[in-house]
Amino acid sequence: MRIELTEVLWMDQYQELSLADLARLSGLSEAELSELVDCGAIVPTNADSAEWIFDAGCLAVAKTACRLRNDFELDTQGLAVALTLLARIHNLEAQLHDLRAQLPGRIF
């Protein structure tokens, strides 16, 4: 049976997401997302504007937040702390990975 080829989309095609889009795609409510923005855990590209716009990075964070909320029954404050720590861990792991790549390996 011939299987049709499906083209993929890059996640950064989600360049501009409204609060409603982010809620629909992440599983969090608009109220929960607003609280996370207030805590600084999610940062819109236009924080000072009344109508927030979010990028693909925010969608990944929001999905993680939804997963943590469901799996650990965390409230918003707890979510914000967990997300901040996870972001730090992620950055450290990326730096570690890059440094290891640049270190000479063993020859023998």
């Binding site: 299987i3 080829l5 499906t6 083209e7 993929v8 989309l9 890059w10 996640m11 095609q13």
Partner: peptide
């Protein structure tokens, strides 16, 4: 379900791609 998809050049480790509607 069996699917066939083209992975474009230049993806990085850990990258997520989306197959809409699949």
């Amino acid at each position: 379900r069996a699917l066939k998809t083209r992975i474009p050049k230049g993806v990085v480790d850990g990258q997520r791609l989306r197959l809409p509607g699949k």
